[in-house]
Design a protein around this nucleic acid. Sequence first.
DNA 1: GAGTGGTCTAGACCACAAT
DNA 2: TTGTGGTCTAGACCACTCC
Lengths: 241, 241
Amino acid sequence: MDIEPLHRRIASDIERRIASGEWRPGFRIPTEAELMAEYGCARMTVSRAMTDLSARGLVVRRRRAGTVVAHPPVHSSALVAIPDIQSEIEGRGLAYSHQLLLRIVRPSRADEDGMGARLIELETLHLADAMPFTLERRLISLTTAPEAEHADFTAAPPGGWLLAHMPWTEAEHRISAVGADGETATRLGLSDGTPCLRLERRTWRDGLAVTWAWQTFPGAAYDLVARFSPTQSPMKTPIKE
Amino acid sequence: MDIEPLHRRIASDIERRIASGEWRPGFRIPTEAELMAEYGCARMTVSRAMTDLSARGLVVRRRRAGTVVAHPPVHSSALVAIPDIQSEIEGRGLAYSHQLLLRIVRPSRADEDGMGARLIELETLHLADAMPFTLERRLISLTTAPEAEHADFTAAPPGGWLLAHMPWTEAEHRISAVGADGETATRLGLSDGTPCLRLERRTWRDGLAVTWAWQTFPGAAYDLVARFSPTQSPMKTPIKE
DNA sequence: GAGTGGTCTAGACCACAAT
DNA sequence: TTGTGGTCTAGACCACTCC
């Protein structure tokens, strides 16, 4: 049986009182000295609990002024998680599969700045229960990832291969709305101009471009959802090993 | 002059070695005892630095096995920040303004479940340098926020008013692609069916629905961008007070 | 000046997992 | 069994900032 550490119990207690509305934004939380007495523990233990809450943005601590429940951000931005395609499909209880439609090794063009001199261009269709789910067009820099030239992208989709062989250190995502153009519409079984969600993703490894991918989702069939409270952010990226 | 705490200096040192690629995923980081010797400090100080890195997912700590540099997530999900409209416009150096197009107080319909018995329906056009930027349709529950009935939404846009008067404790966002329908297209100055990014946002306060809003952005003019490394998440929500 | 949090120490015992 | 991290103590000094 795993007992809950005291510092986490203290933090949870306070978090619950904030979440329930018992302690409203601006409410002054008991001082460390008072919490020491309440929980009968050393100051470091209380301090750790409060530091954790502060790091998560639930409370604001200021010397002399004490610790108060934080106000929600006034200009509230929010976060949406972009799921991995395969996880997304399997998470819906559907069977994931993919088809490699195109594979070309070629020099990079002027508008593909930063992708290195030679690259692979791929087109992959991702399917959920054998129905088209996403069309992905992807470039992989052979300067940064020369091994990609000999990878079998019919076996594993390029996204998964890259994560296993070329973990990124930096990424950029862009979400926009586009109309399905001729070829994309055909591949996805849509009529021309159907609104689609376009997810553009670029990654780098130590400053060198690894890949640049565009994924097009039928607008009606796919959307990005995020639900959270200020208490628990969606930043729960599971890390292996 | 503010000196950097030692625990943060230790964490930064290690972070830098990970980011630079000097310490690759799987690399075993010196033990706490070794770091104590290296920095000439107590174990608690080293421990705090490592605990911080662990909480941020940069390293994985296991008893007996030691601390190793984390592998990037295999099924990598990522996050995109949804900015506040006004900040977004002003951040681009444009002048923000807004027009209230519609304001109705009415009973809620069956498909507006959870919004309370009476609500306000609003339609607001957000402009950047006097050009249409977003059309927003919004419901506000008068059960949860009765003060909204007397608020002047021509002065402050409803989103800002709500954040000031009814901070949420829970939120849900949904991003999808839609074609501009007749009225939306007219308001935004688009032709019918133009692909648009639709941002749906619902918020709750202690379990009670506060608001439900749909914002439609011209697909060509707007997109969501997020750039980050695993080291520094985009989770940089500024908190007031 | 005094109250509050921020950091740090030099120990201690325990939990867990690899051997 | 033993090495490693996880937690905790009982102090200490300092940095801020409100009064």
